[in-house]
């Protein structure tokens, strides 16, 4: 998994779909059917209540990514598919990480890392904390790597979502 990440570039496919039952199923089915190995998928409403945006990230070679895009375009409920250029795209993901922090030293370390990553501690108990961190998937990867030294009790990632930047003069 880690090795694959290094080799191939991250691709971001953003597409808007009709907001109706069964759409997520059809997209998920397509990914399985065509044997596409995706990294993440996220869905959420847009400014228009009838339309949702989905974002898929994957590490893959050019022909594979092209096939994903073409196959998505064929889905009846998919309205528009764009491949986002990672250099001109704002990509964000959120993660919640529950780590083991049994003593003040560990808590101080954690606080240091969280600040460095501009995260937030959102829950504290005598021996554990939940950290919220937002950023690019790579940043999240790096943060999670650091958290391993504490012992990760639980982890939840949202998957990436993205929008293209507006063109600048």
């Amino acid at each position: 998994m880690e090795a694959r990440r290094v080799k191939k570039p991250l691709h971001v496919i953003s597409f808007i779909v009709e907001n109706k039952p069964g759409v997520l199923f059809r997209v998920a089915w397509l990914i399985r059917r065509r044997n596409f190995n995706i990294e993440s998928i996220s869905v959420g409403p847009t400014e228009n209540a009838n339309i949702s945006r989905m974002t898929i990230t994957l590490y893959g070679d050019e022909p594979t990514v092209e096939q994903v895009v073409k196959q998505l375009r064929k889905l009846v409920d998919v309205l528009k598919v764009s491949r986002l250029d990672p250099d001109n795209t704002v990509i964000r993901e959120m993660a919640l990480v529950k780590v083991h922090v049994p003593d003040p030293a560990a808590r101080a370390d954690l606080d240091y890392y969280v600040r460095a990553f501009r995260g937030r501690i959102v829950d504290l108990s005598p021996d554990a904390a939940i950290v919220e961190v937002t950023g690019t998937p790579q940043k999240i990867d790096a943060f999670i790597e650091l958290m391993r030294s504490f012992g990760i009790k639980e982890l939840a990632r949202t998957g990436a979502t993205a929008l293209p930047r507006s063109p600048k003069e």
Partner: peptide, 10 residues
């Protein structure tokens, strides 16, 4: 069908 183009043979 655009998805057929390049699916098996480029």
């Amino acid at each position: 069908d655009a998805a057929e183009i390049g699916k098996n043979i480029k």
